[in-house]
């Protein structure tokens, strides 16, 4: 046990600057989110009879205040994504790159018998720090999101899907893995950091496309009440009487039952309907399951990248 603690102490000292800066950034972000959540909670509590989404005349002033704080809260949640990537990259890139750049790899890789064991020790500590910091962000974004939409249960709703909760941990671990691998390949911190940032951006887009395709295979037709639970919208359009699903092209007039018509005359006379609107969704109650699944996939991808980094580290020159 003392060996593990000693390793943690040394690992911390080797990345002290990054860890302190990232901790400060995460604490600042969490502090801001807590403050906004407190403000929104206070407004909701002070005006229990007001529906801020559809305010009555007596609630207009309170609703305006809520909206303004709510808008800033959204900005905070969105910018948290950058901190998420920053945590992964700044913890991951220096692990091998700095050792190679500063020549200390020659020391570590000859005193120790196994480079892989050395790397696992370094990555394990960085991941531990990363999970703690990212976990704080995950919790606080969920708390803030819940206060922004007090009328729904955000644990079963896709409100701010991808911008809050455990997915931030998954993304951060993916960034960490990419950072370690690219740092090991390039062996210089700054170029590795820049390339890793670009790569992580690309990987995030690719993962969103992949997850989007996965969602399409699981989507169901929305029922009338599904919109209340903030489902994940997959696609929508018009279902023709033949059952074929098409886009909205040419359909400009819709009646109260969701039926489309191609002209004003047809709409007014309710004749020659094109078809009925459909929406494919993933219901809000699946939010927890989907997020857990994608977090695991992203973290596993990060772990694969670390394995790649180990393979590179085994073969690369130490300078």
């Amino acid at each position: 046990m003392s060996g593990v603690l000693n390793w943690a102490r040394l690992s911390f000292r080797l990345q002290r600057l990054e860890i302190l800066l990232l901790t400060a950034a995460v604490l600042a972000a969490c502090g801001l989110m807590a403050w906004f959540a407190f403000q929104l909670d206070g407004l909701s509590a002070a005006h229990p009879d007001c529906d801020f989404l559809d305010p009555a005349a007596s609630c207009l002033a309170a609703s305006a205040s809520f909206e303004s704080v709510d808008g800033l809260g959204e900005l905070i949640i969105m910018s948290t994504s950058l901190v998420t990537f920053g945590v992964g990259l700044f913890l991951g890139v220096p692990l091998v790159a700095r050792e190679v750049e500063q020549g200390t790899a020659q020391l570590a890789w000859t005193i120790g018998r196994s480079r892989v064991r050395w790397l696992i020790g370094r990555v394990a500590f960085a991941m531990l720090v990363g999970v703690v910091l990212l976990g704080m962000l995950a919790v606080m974004t969920d708390v803030l999101a819940a206060t922004m939409r007090p009328e729904i249960d955000t644990s079963e709703a896709f409100w701010f899907y991808g911008g809050r909760g455990p997915l931030l941990v998954g993304r951060g671990l993916l960034a960490l893995g990419a950072g370690v691998l690219i740092g090991a390949v390039i062996g210089k911190q700054l170029p590795a950091l820049l390339l890793a940032a670009l790569t992580v951006g690309g990987m995030t887009l690719a993962s969103e496309v992949a997850f989007g395709s996965w969602h399409e295979t699981e989507a169901v037709l929305a029922s009338d009440n599904d919109h209340l639970s903030e489902p994940l919208g997959i696609s929508s359009g018009i279902e023709l009487p033949s059952g074929e699903r098409v886009g909205y092209g040419g359909a400009e007039f819709q009646d109260e039952n969701g039926v489309f018509y191609s002209s004003q005359e047809d709409f007014e006379a309710r004749r020659n309907p094109i078809g009925r609107e459909y929406q494919l969704i993933i219901p809000g109650e699946r939010y927890g399951e989907i997020v857990a699944r994608e977090t695991v996939v992203l973290a596993a991808a990060g772990a694969l990248l670390v394995i790649g980094a180990a393979a590179v580290t085994l073969r690369r020159r130490p300078t």
């Binding site: 040394l10 000292r13 080797l14 002290r16 500063q102 020549g103 200390t104 020659q106 020391l107």
Partner: peptide, 11 residues
């Protein structure tokens, strides 16, 4: 003992 003995700055 490498050509440029590099120790860890933070340690």
């Amino acid at each position: 003992v490498p050509q440029s003995p590099a120790l860890y700055d933070g340690l």
